[in-house]
Design a protein around this nucleic acid. Structure first.
Lengths: 203, 203, 203, 203
DNA sequence: AATGAATGAGCATTCATTCAT
DNA sequence: CATGAATGAATGCTCATTCAT
């Protein structure tokens, strides 16, 4: 947790961040719907009603958690996509960036995995749909470039391949624990090795 | 599926099955907790209270859906595991069987993915834990055999590899729609090709 | 339970009686409100809905149980009250008759004790109020006669005495089990001895 | 009683007490099962859900009402039983204490009378059984001492006598209204006179 | 900033009752 | 006579949210 908040006057935006981190952890552990505002408040050491001084609603906490996460994710992705790398290097960089993101925002990623689909139906979470579309465009485009320049195999259904790679990376958030045996970079390397070269021994 | 039953003298135990299929569909679409008994009843064309003539509780519907699914899954898996196949053929058969299961029980698989973790804490759903342990033993054992006999690569963390393969297969339930472009067997073949040989073109 | 019902044709009024006895037993054991129609049906070996062939409603079962009991009770009481006995002999006869009634209709008496007060508010059970009024008149009148002719003590509040005697007798239904150690007449004798002469040893 | 609280800074734990008194009154009047949480809330001038801010459940209200009552009852009883009185004086003191308790906790006593038997089956209300056993031991023991020292008659079945005295006292709660014509002590005196010496005039 | 108390809508579940067969 | 299936109103309870202090 960040520094001690200053005695007074200043709005203490850090408090927001702390509370959101707490909320994200609980949402990830119990699921958004199953999480009561009271449990978040308990975890934050306050009463349920007090959260409403900081946030409009339970939903707006979720909103802020997800949009903050997606903001940072796209910062990283955009840097990769704008770097002019080849298809294979782009995939490698995106996967590595993804595992770093899982490391930094594990709770947010887990929430995203569980809740994105049904949240996407609400206007408020329209940006989830947009993000997903950009996401698909970036990955699918890279795979297509790779097939075209013979980096990737041409005999696979490309949408199936896209889903394979995408899922393969992100589900890791469901078991990944920051500070565990493997660093995000190490996990990325192993995953890339499996995705690119397969698990069968080459002869 | 909520097709109206024919105006004949249908035996009745089928009614249970119909209702469970309806419930599974709704659970899969909205999540177990977010699904109200009323919505299930709506989908079944009856009133909420009427469901309780057939089932003890919302939870017992979930229970019956999951245990039925796992029962059939293990029937298939046990046949594969008892067939005396080599590691690669075993993995191929398990993956194919899994996609067939996704095809037959898409809703149940989706529910399992979303809810298994927190349900496992309840005594009533202890069998989820047991199933998961058997599952892990079967897959991990096969991978280890494969590493030993040089079917699979020895340079990968084996637990990471297990998770990779496992997740890779089952998340497919989140996008798979029965009756779509690809048959389960076709999807299995493509997934196996990616998992075993990778997506990179071999030189 | 009575004789085997005849093969057909005749409406079998005995069946009603059997069912009412079953219902009374369950009402007495669990309380009227807490008793579900299903439990009565279970105890009678049929399904809940089937009871409605015999009775209009759960309430009408209760009604029939109570009115039958009160009918028999008043038959006995009226015989006593019309016999021209002295106050002490009247009290003795009423108490003895009451214990006989408890012996014959234990369930009904227990139900009466628990439910009469709040049932009395409903028009349908108006007869409970009337019965209670006749009851009070009979007992109070007898006690007053006894005070007047110096059979009973004059130094006691007569309404208090009435309640004392009345409650004393009827609560016995809450612990009395037919076929137990004491016959109704034996219990009546002991109660009368206590009520009339007290439990203290006379010097 | 639902008197509006004064517009001051009242400590708040009193609120619990007020609500419990209200609930007890309703339970006593309608029976525990027949009482809806909504009716209690109505009587307290709030909505049903609001009660759950103060209490865990309807059952825990009942629990608190009964255990509070029994706690105070045993405080009084223990003082009497520890005072080293003779059998007759002990009975007199217990009866007087009981009527005082009825005066103070009329609703709780009435609830106890109606519900204790079936509540006793639940583990949560085990203390009702224990209390009843201590109760029986105290009364039965006192009666036995009295028979031994020739204070009480030897020609009566002692268990029957116990039930007689016990019921005789406690049913009074069903008609007693605090603030009525007779003080608890006056009623106790009359009851004792009847129980000990009988209602028949001595010659 | 936070508390304590309350709101009100909604939920899973129960149950007396109905009715076609 | 009895069953199987359904109804619909009510019940205990939960929970996001509000607001005066």
């Amino acid at each position: 947790m960040p520094t001690k908040k200053k005695p007074q006057a200043i709005p203490a935006p850090e408090r927001r961040g702390e509370l959101l981190a707490t909320a994200a952890e609980v949402f990830a552990a119990q699921g958004y719907n199953a999480t009561t505002v009271r449990r978040i408040a308990d975890a934050a050491g306050m009463l349920a009603g007090s959260l409403y001084y900081h946030f409009d609603s339970k939903e707006s906490m979720l909103d802020e958690i997800l949009s903050t996460f997606l903001g940072e994710l796209w910062e990283g992705y955009d840097a990769v996509l704008g770097a002019g790398l080849g298809p294979r290097e782009t995939i490698e960089a995106l996967v590595t960036e993804s595992f770093r993101e899982i490391d930094r925002h594990r709770a947010a990623v887990a929430i995203y995995q569980k809740e994105a689909r049904h949240l996407a139906a609400q206007p408020r979470f329209q940006y989830l749909v947009e993000s997903q579309e950009r996401f698909e465009k970036a990955w699918l485009g890279t795979l297509e470039r790779g097939v075209a320049d013979r980096t990737f195999r041409a005999d696979l259904d490309i949408r199936l391949t896209y889903r394979f790679v995408r899922d393969t990376v992100w589900v890791a958030a469901s078991w990944y624990r920051p500070g565990g045996r493997h660093s995000p970079e190490e996990i990325a390397r192993q995953y890339l090795s499996m995705v690119l070269d397969g698990i069968a021994l080459r002869r």
